[in-house]
Structure formats: structure tokens, C-alpha cells
Design a protein around this nucleic acid. Sequence first.
DNA 1: AGAGATCGTGGGAGCGCTCTCACGCACGGT
DNA 2: ACCGTGCGTGAGAGCGCTCCCACGATCTCT
Lengths: 342, 342
Amino acid sequence: MTVNGRHSGRPTLEEVAARAGVGRGTVSRVINGSPRVSDRAKAAVEVAVAELGYVPNRAARALAGNRTDAIALVIPEPETRLFAEPYFSDIIRGVGAELADTDMQLLLTLIRTPKERSRFAQYLSAHRVDGVLLVSVHEDDPLPDLLEQLDMPAVLNGRRSDLESVSYVDSDNVGGARSAVGYLLGRGRRAVATITGPVDMYVARCRLDGYRQAVGAAGLGDDASLVARGDFTEEGGRRAMRELLARRPDVDAVFAASDVMASGALQVLREAGRRVPDDVALIGFDDSVIARHTDPALTSVRQPIEEMGRTMARVLLEEIAERTSVRRHVVLATELVRRDSA
Amino acid sequence: MTVNGRHSGRPTLEEVAARAGVGRGTVSRVINGSPRVSDRAKAAVEVAVAELGYVPNRAARALAGNRTDAIALVIPEPETRLFAEPYFSDIIRGVGAELADTDMQLLLTLIRTPKERSRFAQYLSAHRVDGVLLVSVHEDDPLPDLLEQLDMPAVLNGRRSDLESVSYVDSDNVGGARSAVGYLLGRGRRAVATITGPVDMYVARCRLDGYRQAVGAAGLGDDASLVARGDFTEEGGRRAMRELLARRPDVDAVFAASDVMASGALQVLREAGRRVPDDVALIGFDDSVIARHTDPALTSVRQPIEEMGRTMARVLLEEIAERTSVRRHVVLATELVRRDSA
DNA sequence: AGAGATCGTGGGAGCGCTCTCACGCACGGT
DNA sequence: ACCGTGCGTGAGAGCGCTCCCACGATCTCT
């Protein structure tokens, strides 16, 4: 049941050429959108392509053209679990949306063991993708450096530090934290505490910075007794909140650097008999599912995750297209989503 | 520059062969694990491969071998949002784990528009993947039929009906619902209601069936006034719960076919002044993040999602390996996770 | 001991593209 | 009229692999 052909497969370039009455080269030019083709030839080829239902063979193209038309989305596993839940799918949604009109393929690569990491390095040097999207980079992650060294187009989601050299797309963690704390201060709260993430994570430091900036801008001194260290887990949030309550019984607002920690803090506040938001206002970060389901629902800082995914893909495609290795750094704005907890 | 000289790329099969002092064919046999190679030749090749850091060129292999060593994970978009959030990442985690020791690539394909759907169909007929993993099939989804028609190895996550012909991996929705309801009955609840999903979804019907089986087994009649229809949304859960409360003020337990609906029901119960679990016991389904963060935390039926992902991948690989198209149907057990709501 | 069967092996013939080059042909300028 | 100059074009030469066939060497079995 092959169209009218002798062999049992998909039509090839050659067959299209024969049908259109042109050479292989001309068909190739039309397929790849080269301008140096006469209108007549182009039309003929397009007809033949349509009639035969021709679709280029990716492998052949990759082999001849020395490219792959594929990019990898790399996810270091340990992270995934920690993530605010919709994060992952939102990033993918964004990347997918941006890639939809391209014929780039999206390869998913999970890395959870050192073995898989080195496997991936090998993978990269075998040039099996045209570019890499790296989610949730750690400060001590060697992958970005490897990517840079191999001169492989790459875009990080987040960055390792202020000095990040590899291209990245990040959300404005500092600004988000600052506006959350600013909001609390604006509502007359005076003893505004914060529960931080692990301070060896850049993103945690940024949120703490934002807190400090807002507090400083309000003319309040930097009071260490209002800063408790968490670790982005619920239990960590509980612990930090207990600490805060012990140190500063007068606390009237808390900015937690993640919804998960805020959720933990909320439990402790309730147990301690503090009403939220009446006695203590509470703001989280991430605007995750959790935020909508706690009682009261959490006011939280939303990151434009899907937009980040889209931007990452766009930036990567640009970087692949122009072969120069100009780094791009994009920081997207966050948004304070007001609910009931503050 | 490339003919037989040192070119600037990765080592090729040919170079490995030269270095090992054997022919191209022999190297290929070693690489692909063919048994018909002498130990001596095999050792020599392995040394050469290691020394040169040889990694086979995927495109060349695909072109010559007429396969791709890639499978697609297809996600119909409208669904994704509905999903209990960790679902998606858990499936991916499972698939990834199973694929880790293979050199199969995982391609992610989002389908959100009819245009993308037809694009994907074309993609399939161009044979760009060796197999397909299809998440969250709808009953009227034409994709599985297309897959079957193209004779493309495929595994569904869930099934369209009892008569599903394509291979699938599903969780035991009927059994999960039955055990949840059985648990409620076992604790002495007598007016056990259920909030169903949309009845045009197979999974929703299964959970309703499980409910009916448990109620029937307890010798209680099938009481339509205890069945309220939801739609897997929170608002649907609220509406159904109000309905239930109006019809049966004596209701003392509710089995909701999803955590999201259970969360909605919980709000209505609280507003109505019913204590959970004292007055009304409540069980959800999915064991999602939400379940852990409501107050009280939801007892819920857990699906082994990651295990489903793993199984899907394993089944697909088998199906690709043996070219026969024997269908496989795997149903994995669920587990009742007891928390505070029942 | 001879005839087959079996094994390991090398290398030719592609797989379906892209790249490149050289060939016409139509122009413009002189 | 002449010669460039440019454009559109066809086709050869690979890209790096797998498949397959044929070859000699070894191993059976009568």
C-alpha cells in the first residue's frame, strides 16, 4: 500500500524530485526554505511534497547536516521532589509551547546518580543535542561549566550566583521578596520576620536580600532576631516558626521563602493560638497548589513559571541559530498574589 | 579534508576498526553485543573504543538501522492541568528510571491543539520514534487507534474502556474505591455517599463501580440519593456536597473520587457545621499534595504512580523488542493512606 | 579421509539527506 | 557584437552506521 512506489516505506527526497521533475538539490532547497529557487520550481516541489505526503527523514538530515534538531531538558533528580509541584509541568508547558512551531524535538533527561551524570557528559560530547535547558541548577553544579567548555548552547533556569556566565532565565527573587515584605510593612506590620531557605542556595539568599532591602527601605534596622533559617521543607518551616515565636513573641508578620515552609509556620502559629492574619500576617513564595489549600489560603509571591519555560526555549533557539556565544541573562518579574493570610 | 585524514570530530567506527586491527563489521558486532565475535577480537575492539572514547553516532545508526532508539511520551495538554500535580512528574520519574540503563531517548510531546495532533500523526507515520507512551487517554481519543493502525508499539496510561485493545498500565481504580468505602463501612458508617467524577470518563465510572461493590457487599441497597455527580474540580466537589447534604442530612461518610473534590466537599462540610471526621468521615482519591495540606488532612487512595511509569516503560520496551504485537494489560494495586479525615 | 556444516570475519552496498561545485542560461555593460 | 556576472540548477561525494554476502578456517559427521 505504498503510494505508487516500489519499496515499502516513506517517500524520499529523490522520489519527490522525480515527481516534481527537478533535481534532488532543488527539493532540498525548497524544503529548507532557501531563497535561491525559482517560483516555478518551488511550486512544483510543493505540489509533489503534498501529493506524496513527504516528510523528511530526521536521521538522514542529522547525519548529513551534522546537527540533531533536538534539545535536551535536563532535570537533576534530587531537586524535582523539592520543587513546588506545578513548577515542573509549567516549565515543560512553556518550553513545549515555544517549541511547537519549530521542528525541534524535546528530549527529557533525568540525572539522579553520578553515573548518569557522566553518561550525560558523554552524551553531550557525542553531540547528540543542539542545545541544553538546565532546570534548577545548584551552586556547585559542574554541568554548566561542562556545557560552556564544550561550547554547547545552554540556558539555565535560575543561576548559580550573581556572576553566572552561562545564559539563564530567572525570576526576580529579590524583587518578589521585597514587594511581599513591603506589602506587610505597608499594612502597618512592624515586627516582620522571615523564614529563609538554606543559605547555601542562591535563590534563598536572594529572597533574604529582598527581605532586607524592604526592611531597610522602611527605615527599620536589620534585626537578626527576626531572621530564622529554614530549609524549604515543611518541618523546617515549623521549626523556624517556633524559634521565631520564642525569640520574638511580638512578631506580627512572617515572610516565608517558600509556601511549603509557610504551611509549616501556619500550623505552628495556629497551635500557638495566633490568628492568621489578625495576629500574624503570613506570606509565602511560589504560589503553589499548597497556597490555595491551606486555611487560611496563603498570600504568596508568584513566579511566571510557564513564561520562564517559554523564554528559556526562545533564548536557547536564538543561541543555537546564531553561532556566536553571546550570553543572555533574563530576569522575569514576580507578582504578589493576595489571598487571606496577609 | 575528511576522507581518510584526521578530521576534527568524534572518532568513527572506521577509526576504531583501524586501531583494533579488525574490520568495520566486527566493531559493529561488538558494539551491538552480537555473540558471533571471537574473544580476542572483542577485547581488541573494547580497548580501542576505550582509548578513543568512541560513542556511536546516533543519526547514522538510525539511518542505517531504520529505527530511532527513541520513544515519545505524549501528553495531551488539556489534561495536564487537571492532574493531581505530582502525577506528571512521578510518571516521568518512573519512565526515566526504567530507561536509564537503556540508550533509549525519551521525547516529550505536548499536544494541545488539533493542529499539533495532526502534526504528531505525521510525526508518527514518518516513524520518528520506536514507540509511544500515552498519558491520560480520553475515551474519545483517536490517538490509540491511530497508533494501532500504524502498528506502532504503544502503551497507554489508563484505558479507554474495559475493552481496551492497546496495551495499557492502569491502577486498580475499582479496587481502590472499594477498599476506601469498605473502610468507611467497617468503621460503622452507614450512610456512605460518593462524589463521582464525570461519568463519561472511564476512570470515574471505575471508582463509582468500586463504591457500589463495597456498598453491595455490605448488604446495603444501591441508594441513588447517596450518589452525587462531580467533575473532578473543587467547585464540583462543593456543589456535590451541598446537594448531598440537602438530600441526605443523615450522611455520615463521603467517598470523593478525587482529592480536589474532597477538598471542596470539606469546605462545605465545615460551613455546614459538620465535624470531620466525627460527624462525617471523608476519603479522597489520588493522595495528592492537597491531601496532606487540608485540615484535617485527607485520608486518600494512593496510586503507585511512579511504579506505573516504570511499568509502562518496561512494557513498551518489551513490545518494541519482540516485534509481535501481543497486547499487555497491567493493573497495579492501590493503597489506602489513612490520615485524619476518616 | 572427505564432504559438509559452522564459525568468525572483512568489506561492499546502501540508508536519505546536505553540501558543494560546475554547468547552463539570461542578463547587463562596453 | 563581445564578455563578464549572476542566478537557478543537477548531480557527485560524502555523513557514519547496519546489513548482508562471500570468504577462509575450523569443526563436525559419516
